[in-house]
């Protein structure tokens, strides 16, 4: 389908955990019968460097439409790797990744690019804004590869910027605004194409506590308007604001606050004991992140590794 078909960007539909109907599926791209926007089955990812790094060691989870998911875990636990797989920037070493109903193993690099252009929005810790162009054009670039004209892109960018509260800063350069505002610009750029999923990797990592909180408020607000958002963070305090928290350790899911609903594979208890061993062997987490900790009990020493 043409991305243009979705222009002009209508106001987002209300947040309904839409039980989506799998209509008109290409035969080889038919998803599992679930309604998940993202689904991972026993995914592993090994970086073949010397020595090889097993960044993910068998992860299964599903994210449904309208969810706001926090992914937490210490440094090196595989969060960014997970996000890259969910965003189709990379392919798993084994296992299956379904994104918006596509098995990404069956898609070519070009098709994955098209999928990202239309359905996935990214927010990065470093913002990645172009200093030579205005805030408006930075956001408009979020649609550059979706086939929209410059005028259409700018109009959509204006709407996205007003959604993140920057309607009055369209013409300024990223260098002229604060870090929090920059991250809002980056979020607007992720939203501008009305993607099915927004993936944020440490979006508050470069911001102070208060600014980080306001960015988080923005995510909560956008989510309440219907956007599916996955936020990766070190910060357990931030994670506690998420409806659902998935905790990672050494490439495995330690626990998932939605494990009841998301299927038996995600049960933290299953992997608990192994994780303990792995954690001790790796010896890199500052404080103990015990399997028993729930999302509502933030782990102080773990918050800023």
């Amino acid at each position: 389908m043409s991305p243009l078909a979705r222009l002009p960007w209508a106001p987002p539909p209300p947040a309904t955990p839409a039980p989506s109907e799998p209509e008109a599926l290409a035969p080889d791209a038919i998803a599992s019968p679930s309604s998940a926007v993202i689904e991972l089955f026993d995914v592993t990812k090994t970086y073949f460097v010397q020595p090889p790094v097993e960044a993910l060691r068998g992860v299964s989870m599903a994210v449904h439409q309208g969810e706001l998911v926090g992914v937490v875990g210490p440094s090196g636990s595989g969060k960014t790797t997970l996000l890259h797989l969910m965003g189709t920037l990379d392919r798993p070493t084994s296992g299956t990744v379904w994104v918006t109903g596509y098995d990404i193993a069956k898609l070519s690099d070009r098709e994955l690019s098209a999928l990202r252009a239309g359905r996935v929005g990214f927010v990065f810790q470093q913002f990645f804004l172009a200093e030579h162009q205005t805030v408006l054009d930075n956001v408009a670039d979020g649609l550059l590869y979706a086939g929209a004209t410059l005028a259409e892109r700018r109009q959509a960018a204006e709407e996205a910027l007003s959604r993140v509260g920057l309607a009055d800063r369209l013409g300024v350069r990223p260098t002229q605004i604060s870090g929090g505002q920059r991250q809002r610009v980056a979020i607007a750029r992720a939203l501008v194409g009305r993607p099915a999923i927004v993936l944020a990797d440490e979006p508050t990592g470069n911001l102070d506590q208060a600014t980080g909180q306001s960015i988080l408020d923005l995510f909560v607000e956008l989510n309440s308007e219907g956007t599916t958002i996955i936020v990766i963070t070190h910060d357990v305090a931030i994670a506690s604001r998420m409806r659902r928290v998935v905790r990672f350790l050494d490439g495995l899911i330690l626990d998932d606050s939605a494990s009841g609903g998301a299927g038996p594979r995600l049960a933290g208890a299953e992997i608990g004991p192994t994780v303990d061993g792995a954690e001790e062997a790796a010896g890199r987490s500052g404080g103990a992140l015990s399997p028993g900790d729930g999302p509502d009990g933030p782990d102080g020493p773990e918050a800023r590794a």
Binding site: R6, P195, A196
Partner: peptide, 14 residues
């Protein structure tokens, strides 16, 4: 959101 949740049709880059 307006984008289909499940894959449908061909994905072709612009």
């Amino acid at each position: 959101m307006n984008g289909p949740v499940n894959g449908s049709g061909a994905l072709s880059p612009a």
